[in-house]
């Protein structure tokens, strides 16, 4: 299952490390990654492929620990973007 992970938060060291560490632990492969600083906010998009046996809700739960560090992280299956923005 393909999903997009969006990470938005104040720029500081270790964000990519912390996010990708969780992905590694859950056996989730990163297929594409892009990041930029918009105004002072760190914005990163990751296209990942999630194994069949991993639930998105489990992943979201793991990411919720990073909320305390000021990071807002969304995990969404890619179909939603294709549906909304393509005819």
């Amino acid at each position: 299952m393909k999903a997009v992970i969006t990470v938005i938060g104040e720029d500081k060291t270790g964000i990519i490390y912390k996010v990708s560490k969780i992905l590694y632990e859950m056996n989730i492969n990163i297929e594409d990654i892009s990041q930029t600083i918009m105004q002072k906010y760190f914005t990163m998009l990751m296209l990942v492929s999630i194994p069949q046996d991993v639930k998105i809700s489990e992943l979201t739960e793991k990411f919720s620990a990073l909320k305390e560090e000021g990071l807002s992280i969304q995990v969404q299956k890619t179909d939603i973007f294709d549906s909304m923005h393509k005819i």
Partner: peptide, 12 residues
């Protein structure tokens, strides 16, 4: 293929 702007627009 997911386009960067589409994702950000959805989030917004």
């Amino acid at each position: 293929m997911v386009i960067y702007n589409d994702v950000l627009e959805t989030i917004r």
